[in-house]
């Protein structure tokens, strides 16, 4: 997974509603057709950073398998951040493409 894109993906999947950590990882895997894998080693530090930045909030709840888990919810700042990150991603992507296929 390219550097820095994990945050974008996490924020993106949270746009559809609150999810717990494991569900976030699963969703990323499914949506990417089992290509991208959010490993816990990078997922949880990334989530902590988002808490520090104030993009998400966390609240305890019960999972579909009856486990005590923490649900992450996107904040207003987080929603803005998704837009910013997508824009940034598009820019960088376009720039890379123009070099690769020039």
């Amino acid at each position: 997974m390219p550097q820095g894109s994990l945050a974008l993906l996490v924020l993106r999947v949270l746009e559809s509603g609150p999810l717990h950590g494991y569900a976030i990882a699963q969703r990323i895997r499914q949506l990417s057709g089992e290509v991208l894998e959010a490993e816990e080693g990078s997922l949880y530090p990334a989530l902590q950073r988002m808490l520090v930045e104030g993009w998400v909030t966390a609240a305890w709840g019960v999972s579909e398998t009856n486990r005590r888990v923490r649900f992450y919810t996107l904040t207003r700042a987080g929603q803005k951040q998704v837009k910013r990150e997508i824009e940034q991603y598009e820019q960088v992507n376009a720039a890379i493409r123009s070099i690769l296929y020039a």
């Binding site: 717990h20 950590g21 494991y22 990882a25 816990e40 949880y44 902590q48 486990r67 005590r68 923490r70």
Partner: peptide, 12 residues
């Protein structure tokens, strides 16, 4: 809390 959350992740 983080430890608890991560162990739940492992179990799942």
């Amino acid at each position: 809390e983080l430890a608890e959350e991560m162990s739940a992740h492992r179990e799942m």
